[in-house]
Amino acid sequence: MHPPKKRILISAFLTSILSLMAHSANAELPMSNKLLLTGGVSQVEGAAGGGLTPWALIGGYGTNNEVGGNIHYTYVKSNDFKLDSYGFTLGLFDRVEFSVAQQEFDIGQLRNKVTAGLGADAIGRDTLDQIIVGLKVRVFGEAVLDADTWMPQVAVGLQYKENQDNEFIKSAVIGAKSDHGTDVYIAATKLLLDKNLLLNGTLRFTKANQFGLLGFGGDKNDSYDPMLEVSAAYLLSKKLAIGAEYRMKPNNLRSPANAALFGGAEVINLQEDDAFDIFVAYAPTKNIALTAAYVYLGNIATVDAVGADYGKQEAVYLSAQIGF
């Protein structure tokens, strides 16, 4: 079901990260000299940021003279769905960030309800998968050290997303216009050091439905729309931050099946809502970061007729990363 190549890519990276970490422990290699937590954590799409939002920080602990990187695993469990995401982030000289994330979105519960209600397996799969390849470039600014100005660190980035269940997401049930898309964003991050406060604003242009898990574009809308994402984090110590994020999401989908099969009644409701989270991030050392969050995702897919009243998804978000 998943192209093995991608698994190989990720495990190869894991091996090299672990060997580099072992190397750094006994060698004089300059490594991991960024200050604790100032590389952010892996957000849900693999870029360095908060939980939901990419920040202008470059991932990993490499300074302008070093390379940094990490691997992450993220688990999101909402009332009726589940998401697993794993991947890696590579930071080059505090200038360029490259990331890959593989996401598996578990829709088994919805599938069972629909199958029982209709007497037919209309969904035909338990997961929707996608791979996300990200690139970010710091344009200017120094988010941490420029403590005497309001000038933030600014980065531009893109996330190429390829859904691996194109048959289903482009079917009459979902009606996505494409199985792949590229999000483009600009992010500004500022650490107000004397106030222990980190602020971030990201403007993203995207067609992605539910991050891309339900494809790109739809019957309601198929154009790139600007979406604002904001984060605030308060530092309780060098190792511990708490924060909140808000992420606007597009609302592109209208199931073609509603008109074709149900006379226009909204039997399959794919209305998409904005998301927000409240998080705590803990980095006991530069090699480990743990993030826990409450995430509100709103509606993803509701089919009231079969008892799948899934309108308000609230989720637990747990993420761990190791790296240097």
Binding site: V144, D146, N196
Partner: peptide, 14 residues
């Protein structure tokens, strides 16, 4: 205290 540390570091970092 951490917040006092950061007030001084904010003067030094630039």
């Amino acid at each position: 205290p951490f917040s006092a540390q950061n007030k001084l570091l904010a003067k030094l970092a630039p």
